[in-house]
Amino acid sequence: MALDKRFLLYASGIFICYFYFGILQERITRGKYGEGETQEKFTYTLALVFVQCVVNFAYAKIMLSTVMKQGEDKTSRMYYASSALTYLLAMVCSNMALQWVNYPTQVVGKSCKPIPVMILGVLFGNKSYPMAKYLFILTVVLGVAMFMYKDKPVSAKQEVDSGIGIGEILLILSLIMDGLTGAIQERMKTEYQSKSGHMMLYMNLWSVGYLAFALLITGEMFDFAGFISRHPFVLWDLTTFSIASALGQFFIFRMIADYGALPCSIVTTTRKFFTVMASVLYFGNQLSGRQWTGAVLVFAGLTMDSVYGKKKAPKKS
């Protein structure tokens, strides 16, 4: 009974933290600030990711010194530097996409993450996967195609709101970066047996460094400071947004440690679907029947892959 209560605690923590995270992410990136003609949008993606990486780094530091002690780390710093760059680009593209697409589209698009991971694994990692996994991922691809397909716009405003493909292109770039990050992390695990806590710590540390440099060079740091001075309440949203992300990761790590990756992947996949539903209800992001069908196919494929697609095929000779 105690184990069941703990499982419910972890699952509830994942749902609540990422539900709040999703609401804040959409509110920050798609909201309008100010009144009348002085209204403006939040366009400071680098600053947004910078705050998130700082909080993630602090979280990893605290966890490694308390409940996640993982010993000495001997991983090459070049691996951390390269994986941090791809990890950072994935987050920047994903957050930037929200300026053109709504949150449900971002969630469904990012659910395709296994696809580039598989492709890069086959091309560069000498990996092979069982046929069932290909079928489940094909279901995901079909669902995403149905969800992303744009009906002919009925007005010029809808055509602009559709983002003319910019948001989708950014999501594709984000997925490619996710795949590269996964490939680099696989090498780290194989060569150095790198632990998750160390990865999170050093990848976020490098990301903070990259972003600080980028914010200074682009001048976004000063524009962001001006935006905060005009709308100081946004700083609270940014901080709680990042804390929700870090706490969500804590519950994910605990669930993996106590129950394994399979129950965790099912919970996180289910969470994404309910996040889409919450975004539709909370922000009025209307979806067509075709998009709902596509979303169901995506999450059904991911869930089936979590349950039945984990069996490893032999490596290519």
Rank of each mutant, 00 (worst) to 15 (best):
S111Y: 04
S111V: 04
S111I: 03
S111G: 07
C112G: 13
C112T: 13
C112E: 10
C112N: 08
C112D: 09
K113Q: 11
K113G: 08
P114A: 03
P114S: 00
P114I: 04
P114Y: 04
P114V: 01
I115L: 15
I115S: 06
I115M: 12
I115T: 09
P116Q: 05
P116V: 04
V117R: 07
V117A: 14
V117K: 05
V117Y: 13
M118D: 01
M118R: 04
I119N: 05
I119T: 11
L120N: 00
L120E: 01
L120V: 00
G121E: 07
G121Q: 06
V122N: 08
V122C: 13
V122K: 13
L123C: 08
L123Q: 02
L123W: 12
F124A: 09
F124R: 10
F124E: 06
F124Y: 14
G125E: 02
G125C: 01
G125Y: 02
G125P: 01
G125S: 04
N126F: 12
N126G: 10
N126V: 09
K127N: 05
K127H: 03
S128G: 09
S128T: 12
Y129L: 05
Y129T: 08
Y129S: 04
P130T: 00
M131Y: 15
A132Q: 11
A132P: 03
A132G: 02
A132Y: 09
K133W: 12
Y134D: 00
L135G: 06
L135H: 06
L135A: 14
F136D: 06
F136C: 13
F136I: 11
F136Y: 14
F136S: 07
F136P: 07
F136K: 08
F136L: 12
I137S: 01
I137A: 00
I137L: 09
I137P: 01
I137E: 02
L138R: 01
T139I: 11
T139D: 09
T139F: 10
T139H: 03
V140G: 02
V140R: 05
V140M: 09
V141D: 04
V141E: 05
L142N: 02
L142P: 04
L142V: 14
L142S: 08
L142T: 14
G143A: 00
A145S: 09
A145T: 13
A145E: 06
M146Q: 11
M146S: 01
F147G: 03
F147H: 08
F147Q: 03
F147P: 01
F147L: 05
M148A: 13
M148F: 15
M148I: 13
Y149F: 14
Y149A: 13
Y149R: 14
K150P: 02
K150W: 02
D151E: 15
K152P: 02
K152T: 15
P153D: 07
P153M: 10
P153Q: 10
P153V: 09
P153E: 10
P153F: 09
V154Y: 12
V154N: 11
S155N: 03
S155I: 00
S155V: 03
S155W: 06
A156E: 08
A156S: 11
K157D: 10
K157R: 15
Q158R: 13
Q158N: 14
E159Y: 11
E159D: 11
E159G: 04
E159R: 05
E159V: 01
V160H: 00
V160L: 11
D161R: 05
D161P: 03
S162E: 03
S162C: 01
S162A: 05
G163K: 00
G163P: 08
G163S: 05
G163A: 00
